[in-house]
Simulated scan of single mutants.
Amino acid sequence: MTRASGGSKLLRWFLLLSAGAIVLVLLVVLMFRFVNPPTSAFMLGYQVQSANRSLAHEWVPINEISAWMPLAVVASEDQRFPHHAGVDFEAIRQALSEYRAGEGLRGASTITQQTAKNLFLWNGRSFVRKALEAGLALVIEGLWPKQRILEVYLNVAEFGPGIYGVEAASQAYFDKPALHLTEYQAALLAAVLPNPKVLHVNAPSTYVRERVVWIQGQIAQLGVGYLQDL
């Protein structure tokens, strides 16, 4: 076998494996449109790193979550959620423009990107992870309706160490089901999502309390019917 033919065979195997991996990812994402994910990459990572600690997670359908909760996370994290296709290129351009103007580089991840990250990837700031996150977000947007994206996000998001999903968070912090969350409680949960290992629902810092007020103001501006047509 010549070196050229050996290289060609390796290339064919690489392309076949890559195509197989892409098909597998598409099938898994499509399945999760209809089947609730039993766990997530972040939950599995927590269980590996904190084997002696308990993990709280309970799936609830979106119609058993207070309407304030999806509105609070959209107001807090991704106000263009109803309109973008998974990656908000306008938000990215604005963030880069602010950075070039001397301001800090802020994140521009959409709720869809965060869903992809929590469900399939790992935490970190590497270019590879961000590229995978963006690609998965585009696939998810192509295969899931917006309401399903919100439902999965609210059920896999981390709200505190070992507390995953809004139902577990509502029970842990407010001793009530997620269906009965008030606007303030939903805003408080949304306020810690950027960094739930540092920001705390049960002992909110001044920053968290200020963020709750801001989120409530954004909810008022968006209006209670902002997500009704999803």
Rank of each mutant, 00 (worst) to 15 (best):
V35L: 13
R211P: 01
N63F: 15
P194C: 08
R33K: 11
N195A: 11
I92Q: 00
I111F: 14
L121S: 06
W13D: 13
V25F: 09
S54F: 03
A116N: 02
E58T: 14
Q221S: 11
I163L: 12
G160K: 00
F127Y: 05
V152D: 04
A67I: 06
A203P: 06
V74Q: 08
D88N: 10
Q228M: 07
V166D: 10
W68L: 12
T39N: 06
P196N: 04
F89P: 01
L179D: 10
Q228I: 13
V35G: 04
S50E: 09
G107C: 08
L150C: 02
V25G: 05
K197S: 13
T2N: 15
V29M: 08
H180Q: 13
W68C: 10
W144Y: 05
A91G: 01
V87T: 02
R209L: 15
R125N: 07
A67F: 13
I111L: 15
V208T: 14
P38S: 03
S66I: 09
L17D: 01
M69T: 08
A19I: 06
L15N: 03
G162P: 12
Q171C: 14
R33M: 05
L121A: 11
L138D: 00
V73H: 02
Q113T: 01
A72C: 00
F34R: 08
G104L: 07
R129D: 05
N202L: 13
A4S: 00
A186E: 04
L71G: 05
N123A: 15
A220W: 04
Y164H: 07
N118K: 08
S8D: 03
G102E: 04
F174C: 10
R12P: 01
E151C: 12
K117G: 11
Q147Y: 03
Y173T: 12
P194S: 10
V198F: 03
Y207A: 13
N202C: 11
A85C: 00
G124D: 14
A172Q: 15
G107R: 14
K197Y: 14
V208L: 04
G102K: 12
T39K: 03
H57P: 00
N123D: 15
R148Q: 12
G102V: 12
F159C: 02
Y164P: 06
S18V: 12
A108G: 13
V198N: 10
N118Y: 01
L227R: 03
